[in-house]
């Protein structure tokens, strides 16, 4: 089981080390972690994807909750939230393959953001499945380099997770 957590933390130095240190120390597996500031500049938001059953999730949540700099923790169920990640994929391309790669990018609504003599850089945004799918499709042309962001997630509709409402 995977769980996506939205964790609001104080925007202070060292907070990331406290959170990541806790995960490694307690043997929790982080699948993905993304962090950035929010609408409130004193608050940062981490999106953490962890693998584990409900018991692990309970431990993760309560251990995180003990960190003084952690303000709130919300579990984002997949059917009630959206998540996105971004990937930059450098693919080998020559005159023969270039147009085919561009077509594939098009189908995935990805963008070509750099064109070199022997490569293209494809930028794709989407959920986990979409990024895996395009990566698989481009694999046969030869992926030279791949970089991905951590996933970020948000609950659907009016439900809000903000620093102010806790």
């Amino acid at each position: 089981m995977k769980h996506t957590l939205a964790v609001l933390v104080e925007n202070k130095p060292g907070v990331l080390a406290r959170v990541s240190g806790l995960f490694s120390r307690r043997g929790f597996n982080i699948e993905s972690l993304a962090v950035g500031t929010t609408e409130d500049l004193t608050v940062s938001r981490m999106t953490i994807v962890v693998a584990g059953d409900d018991r692990v999730l309970a431990q993760v949540t309560s251990q995180l909750g003990k960190l003084i700099d952690v303000i709130s923790i919300s579990d984002l169920p997949p059917d009630e939230s959206v998540d996105r990640g971004l990937a930059l994929i450098k693919v080998a391309a020559d005159t023969e393959t270039r147009s085919e790669i561009m077509q594939i990018a098009d189908i995935f609504r990805a963008k070509i953001i750099d064109v070199g003599a022997e490569t293209l850089i494809v930028e794709v945004t989407g959920d986990q499945a979409k990024i895996v799918a395009i990566t698989d499709m481009l694999d046969r042309f030869g992926i030279r380099e791949l970089v991905r962001t951590g996933r970020i997630a948000m609950s659907r509709g009016t439900k809000m997770i903000t620093g102010g409402n806790i």
């Binding site: 309970a58 431990q59 309560s62 251990q63 003990k66």
Partner: peptide, 8 residues
């Protein structure tokens, strides 16, 4: 008092 002890 420590929720992290529950079920640990």
């Amino acid at each position: 008092i420590d929720p992290a002890e529950i079920g640990k």
